[in-house]
């Protein structure tokens, strides 16, 4: 556990980091970013909590089993979205230009951007983002656990 300054700043910054990461995941098809980058940002928030509060508090804050479930959900959703387009091919973008969810046609050329475009890409982005944030978060938690068990002996 670190000093009170670090803990206070962590309390202020933690939600902002999470929201920024989810923003990067959500806008992956319009601005620089995507599932991996946003997931890494959220995982860095988890690492900040872990460093500021120590393993024992962070373990109660962020449950490792929830992260495992989240990662499995992300992986299954990625493969499931890929299988939904199997009418044409695996990984077919069946929602693009369809007029339904994320189905608005894009203006060709330079445009200000519309969130409701790109077909299945935002869904895949969310799936991969959940998978990456859960995977990296559980890796960080597990390594902190291993270091802590080494200190006790």
């Amino acid at each position: 556990m670190m000093s009170k300054i670090v803990r206070t700043i962590t309390n202020i910054l933690y939600s902002s980091i999470l929201i920024f990461g989810f923003y990067i995941i959500m806008h992956g098809h319009l601005t620089p970013g995507g599932g991996f980058q946003g997931g890494a940002v959220v995982a860095s928030g988890i690492a900040l909590v872990l460093i500021a509060y120590g393993y024992d508090t962070a373990k109660d804050w962020i449950k490792k089993s929830n992260l495992s479930i989240l990662e499995s959900i992300g992986g299954l959703a990625f493969i499931g979205v890929a299988f939904l387009g199997i009418g044409t091919t695996f990984f077919y973008n069946f929602l693009a230009n369809s007029g339904t969810l994320f189905g608005n046609p894009t203006v060709i050329g330079i445009n200000p951007g519309d969130l409701n475009t790109a077909g299945v890409l935002p869904l895949m982005s969310w799936a991969v983002g959940l998978k990456v944030l859960a995977g990296l978060g559980s890796i960080i938690l597990l390594m902190a656990y291993g270091i802590k068990k080494g200190d006790e002996k």
Partner: peptide, 19 residues
């Protein structure tokens, strides 16, 4: 991302070897 995964695995091995 693949480099990140391998680095995490290598560091875990390093922790275990050190312990």
């Amino acid at each position: 991302v693949i480099g990140l995964a391998t680095t995490a695995l290598i560091l875990s091995f390093a922790i275990l070897i050190y312990k």
